[in-house]
Design a protein around this nucleic acid. Structure first.
Length: 827
DNA sequence: AGCACGCCGACT
DNA sequence: GTCGGCGTGCTC
């Protein structure tokens, strides 16, 4: 007799209560098709509605009573959509980041690939109108509706007809055999088709044909002319070139002169021509670095590396040649770069070297484009992926190498569930697939450097710039002194003079301020009222270009008030500076200079980014003003001056990483200066010239900074000496939230005390109002746990169980609980 | 989450 | 009685 096999399945149903593996019977007829990593359709719940599921494991036996088990309905995929290794990685992530199965696997699978099963309803084939007498009014209405449409989505019928208790009526009709329900699978996005136009007439007869058209059919003539040069052309392109509409093309089609075809195209996100990026010979340090890595991998000595190379030391060339080595062994490589440096400049280097062998993954791709890139990887058409955080899940089967550039960047940590850190995930993936991991940065994160020092990574140093250019000189300007001198401007004398000289010498300048907008807050001088966002506990930023106040947290925008809403006074003043104000001042002070600004406010449109950068490259910009968007990867040899308008902006944030972040920002921005022949100069304005972040960055001394910072981390028990688990409870109801947070805190302490030997009070902090107490009308309370590596697993287990218990607790209704393991910021 | 069941008040 | 509203609990 056939013995059943069973599949453990993650069902596409997001809820804490269904966050487990469900066991299904594998029917005999699909036993040869089902495989771990394929998607299936399964009946779920009392109504047996069909849901998509992912097969995690196939087992021969189960150890519980099986009378409740249902059979799998259908296998969706021909080949597994996820490899076993990626499934294993997902299961690891679930535990590591306390996430749900479904969240994890939706992150690993390409977005937009998921199927939806939609219920349809139709009249049965043998329907006979004679039955209608026996129906009540409502049922007649349903039948009438269906007779007209033949079949329709069940939900559409329900909303269109507005009949109460409609489910019962439908069920009754179904029981009588008058209507039937059936499922249709909506496969989401498919392959991309694009309309092409094909010429059907002979090229030599072009003039003849033009003569045959009406004399006033100018547009049609234009189209024929264009087509005489090319046989195929994209419809869009044709319409653009000839400035004609679809009707023109259609009328030529009806005349039989052209054909309109749907052709399957792979969307190609990089549409421009990319010049080859030639291999350059390596400097001594680059060569040493490359050889060490290759040797260690080859000898199986070590497969995790940290390259600490100063800005401009040529890390990219090392990456490129490493990838080349991998290609020679027929192995795949993943390159992660921070989202904001996924600029054409970076992409061009990889595509310029490896051409069509590269797939690109970043957030600005459309769902369809992303799917195409994913498919190229999956089908083995490319061996290299360059992408942001989620590219760490690229579905390669023969992975040899993961490179993470600018390893210290915040964007490697996801802010959505699962709140994973791509560096940790990459490390795990490399362990699972026996691949090598290379991290690179000019300013490694304290955690990574600490681990390198402890031998987890092999530390490789590249202390000088590849073209022997000197590191820029950094001059610190104390803004308190400027003020005493009577200079109230946002530019110190020294910076002003430097910009002037630079303009005169026809060199480019970059001005950096890590805050967008014009004024950071506006306030009444009479009563002190500050305009705050009505949804968030945050002051609103004034934007000059659109003349509105914007909340940078929820995006809400309002018109700025002309009189104070509190006291009616008209003395409204604008305080604080943002990039727009810097731009405004610069334009006033240097009217002849060509000025551009680059921040999220003017780079959301596709291509805007590229335009500013190419203008910069072609010398169409003298002064570029920007936020941290301009701090990464830009390589313009003609930039000789960098001005940091307010270096302490990031220093005073209530976050233990404030010093680290400041050091990184200063170093990265400074690194934009003096990449060409002329030595770069950086002018750094600050109110805290004695701070160690500022002093060590002036000296380009990472190690000194590290030594000071790591002492502080140890003293105050911060990472890397501890793990931080940040729990944020949120709700629109402030009072309920306070009660719930206290309850959560006490339960947590209680359970931890029962399970841990030592429990120190300072290790569970809270509940405290979060630094931004209200966001989008939701209040937030924070509980923070600090725990040592040895205890982190048990603490997470206890916390995870507690969350599940509390979600079923009435007291926690409408309370959102969000957990972040080792958050990137505790604000 | 999404669905069915069941309890209870309102209304014919 | 019976319609329909909403709270409760379960999903292999």
């Amino acid at each position: 007799m056939h013995k059943n096999k069973y599949a453990l399945i993650v069902v596409d149903n997001a809820s804490t209560n269904t966050d487990k593996l469900f066991t299904y019977i594998i029917p005999e007829e699909i036993i040869n098709y089902i495989e771990v990593g394929k998607r299936v359709l399964v009946p779920f719940g009392k109504s047996n509605r069909l849901l998509e599921g992912l097969v995690i494991e196939i087992v021969d036996d189960i150890n519980f009573s099986s009378n409740k088990l249902k059979p799998i309905k259908k296998v969706i995929d021909d080949t597994p959509i996820l490899s076993k290794k990626l499934i294993e990685l997902g299961l690891w992530m679930k535990d590591k980041y306390l996430a749900q199965y479904i969240e994890v696997f939706k992150t690993i699978m390409p977005t937009g690939i998921s199927n939806k099963v939609i219920k349809y309803i139709r009249i049965t084939e043998g329907y006979n109108r004679a039955y209608e007498d026996r129906l009540d009014e409502k049922q007649k209405k349903i039948i009438e509706y269906l007779l007209e449409l033949k079949e329709c989505e069940l939900n559409r019928l329900k909303t269109d007809l507005c009949i109460k208790n409609i489910n019962l009526h439908i069920k009754d009709l179904e029981d009588r055999g008058l209507v039937e329900l059936f499922d249709k699978i909506d496969t989401g996005i498919g392959k991309k088709y694009e309309k092409f136009v094909k010429r059907l007439f002979d090229k030599d007869k072009t003039t003849e044909i033009i003569d045959s058209l009406k004399k006033n059919a100018n547009k049609q003539i234009e189209v024929i002319r264009t087509l005489s040069d090319v046989e195929y052309i994209k419809l869009k392109e044709l319409m653009m070139k000839t400035d004609c509409g679809y009707s023109t093309v259609k009328s030529l089609h009806s005349k039989g002169l052209i054909e309109i075809l749907d052709i399957n195209v792979n969307r190609n996100p990089i549409k421009r021509y990319i010049p080859p990026y030639k291999r350059v010979s390596l400097t001594e340090h680059q060569k040493l670095c490359l050889d060490t890595i290759i040797n260690d991998i080859y000898k199986n000595n070590k497969n995790k590396f940290l390259i600490h190379g100063v800005t401009g030391s040529g890390k990219t060339e090392v990456y490129l040649q490493l990838i080349d080595k991998m290609l020679k062994q027929n192995k795949d490589s993943i390159v992660l770069v921070p989202e904001i440096s996924l600029t054409p400049q970076t992409v061009e280097r990889f595509m310029g070297r490896f051409g069509d062998n590269v797939a690109i993954l970043h957030s600005r791709l459309s769902i369809g484009e992303r799917y195409d890139e994913w498919r190229k990887i999956k089908e083995g058409k490319v061996k290299i992926v360059v992408g942001a955080r989620s590219a760490v899940f690229a579905p390669f089967n023969n992975l040899g190498l993961i490179i993470i550039d600018e390893e210290h960047e915040n964007s490697y940590k996801s802010s959505m569930n699962p709140k994973y850190n791509a560096i940790e995930v990459a490390e795990k993936r490399c362990d699972l697939e026996n691949a090598a991991l290379v991290l690179g940065s000019a300013t490694p994160s304290i955690e990574t450097y600490y681990r390198a020092k402890n031998g987890d990574f092999k530390l490789l140093e590249m202390p000088i710039r590849a073209n022997k250019a000197k590191m820029p000189s950094i001059e610190i300007v104390d803004m308190k002194e400027e003020l005493e001198k009577g200079n109230k401007s946002i530019f110190s004398e020294s910076l002003f003079k430097a910009i002037k000289d630079n303009l005169h010498n026809k060199k480019q300048t970059i001005l950096f301020l890590n805050r967008r907008g014009f004024s950071t807050f506006i306030s009444c001088r009479k009563c002190g009222y500050v305009v705050k966002c009505s949804e968030c506990d945050i002051s609103m930023t004034y934007h000059l270009d659109s003349n509105i106040l914007k909340c940078h947290y929820c995006g809400l925008s309002v018109k700025p008030p002309t009189t104070c809403p509190e006291c009616g006074s008209r003395y409204i003043k604008y305080f604080g500076i943002g990039t727009q104000k810097v731009e405004e001042y610069i334009k006033k002070l240097f009217p002849s200079a060509k000025v551009a600004r680059m921040d999220v406010d003017n780079t959301t449109k596709k291509g805007s980014h590229e335009r500013i950068l190419s203008d910069m490259k072609n010398g169409k910009i003298d002064i570029l003003i920007g936020t941290q968007m301009i701090s990464k990867g830009l390589d313009f040899p003609n930039v000789t001056l960098v001005g940091i308008i307010a270096a302490d902006m990031s220093l005073n944030l209530p976050d233990f990483r404030a010093s680290e972040r400041t050091f990184q920002l200063i170093t990265q921005v400074s690194g934009r200066a003096g990449r060409g022949d002329v030595e770069g100069r950086v002018i750094l304005q600050t109110y805290e010239p004695e701070h160690y972040s500022i002093l060590t960055s002036k000296e380009h001394d990472y190690k000194k900074f590290y030594d000071m910072e790591i002492k502080i981390r140890k003293e105050f028990n911060y990472p890397p000496y501890t793990n931080i688990i940040n729990i944020v409870l949120g709700s629109k109801d402030e009072i309920k939230l306070n009660e719930a947070s206290k309850e959560f805190y006490f339960c947590l302490v209680n359970r931890l005390e029962k399970n841990l030997n030592v429990i120190r009070n300072d290790l569970i902090l809270g509940p405290n109002p979060a630094p931004i107490y209200k966001i989008r009308n939701s209040y937030r309370q924070q509980i923070m746990i600090k725990c040592i590596e040895k205890e982190v697993e048990i603490v997470k287990k206890i916390l995870g169980d507690l969350v599940i218990d509390k979600k079923n607790d009435k007291m926690f209704k409408d309370i959102k609980i969000s957990i972040d393991i080792n958050p990137i910021s505790i604000i």
